[in-house]
Design a protein around this nucleic acid. Structure first.
Lengths: 193, 193
DNA sequence: GTAATTTCTTGTCATTTATCAAGTGACTAA
DNA sequence: TTAGTCACTTGATAAATGACAAGAAATTAC
């Protein structure tokens, strides 16, 4: 039960005294999932917060044609949460699935709630987590609206090169908002240069 | 100083006893801005939280070619905030500008902070605001990645028809991630049917 | 280790959207 | 009132990306 990775993650976002972090993570339980396992299925209500310690996870929706559209790719270490489902207790629209073997820590809503209302530093941390996630999403939206696929691909390659070692291209393509054929052609073009 | 609109907005998101809402909004000050005025400029640090009581506001960035890309359109009543700038005290990347004459209420960081740590209901409210904003952004991202411009236009027309009465088409086009010429053609196509 | 399945690439062609330029109508300022 | 600006439309053409199908390469399952 080595929680050093979670604890480090907390410290990295917000300065928190060691004993406080330990109190926050006291209720976190570890578990592992194999590659291609569903962590949280659609139309269910998320009752847990997940900390992804090792591995890759994606979320995806099924569109009108029942095709999977990847909405997010999560890279450890990070929290994986369906905010709407977890905090508003609504069914998820998205499926959360492991892309590699993964190790997680989880805790439930009541624990999060107790920490949120009782521990000043956890409140700040939580808010910061929202701010950062919102900001990342906003950046991706701007990218999607204002840059062409090739630019988005090159940017992902620059910022998260390791993703390409662990995630199939068809999933990356759908995350970039294009088809796998288009991504293949873009890669071919770039390799020529 | 009639705060009934803010108070109603608080109640609509989260059940809060009247005296608590009044305590929360006690520090809010009203002000008005004319059409096409900058509320929050880029490269500045946001020191206020704004509640938009009446009117329309947009945020936009300038891309590499110095063209304005509209990132969000805010419709009263709602909070208008640059989360990253306000909470992490970083310079904004976006410009926030009124699209019509607007009335606002504002309060500063210290007040938000005091309420956040002292008032349980405000904590819940704040978190809910983040959850909802995150969810909206996520929905837009999915739309942008998986649906064509015409579908996105029709959806906006269905969900927020009033925007079309108050916001120039060129701004709506850029919000939809397309050029104004394309939007014009899409509208022409649809009107034929 | 071989068959089955999945992923990736590539070809052809169609669709969507952008670019650029010109023109119209509406609003604005002196 | 008149010139100037801005929003919108439209035309011609080009660029970006998608759809579908076939085959190659990689991975998985037994």
């Amino acid at each position: 039960m080595d929680k050093s990775n979670i604890n480090t993650y907390f410290h990295s976002l917000f300065p928190i005294p060691e004993p406080v972090v330990e109190k926050i993570t006291a209720t976190f339980c570890p578990f592992t999932l194999e590659k291609n396992t569903v962590l949280l299925d659609k139309d269910t209500i998320s009752t847990k917060t997940y900390f992804l310690e090792q591995g890759y996870v994606r979320s995806y929706i099924l569109n009108e044609d029942n095709e999977e559209v990847t909405t997010n790719i999560y890279t450890a270490p990070c929290f994986v949460n369906d905010f709407l489902s977890f905090f508003k207790k609504q069914p998820t629209k998205e499926v959360y699935q492991t892309l590699t073997d993964c190790t997680f820590w989880e805790t439930n809503f009541d624990n999060v709630q107790a920490n949120f209302h009782n521990i000043t530093e956890f409140r700040e941390f939580s808010r910061l987590l929202f701010v950062i996630n919102y900001y990342k999403l906003n950046d991706r939206l701007i990218e999607m609206a204002s840059q062409k696929a090739e630019t988005r691909y090159l940017n992902l390659l620059k910022v998260q090169p390791h993703i390409f070692q662990h995630v199939p291209l068809k999933i990356i393509a759908s995350y970039l908002g294009i088809t796998d054929s288009s991504l293949s052609r873009i890669r071919k073009e770039i390799s020529k240069m």
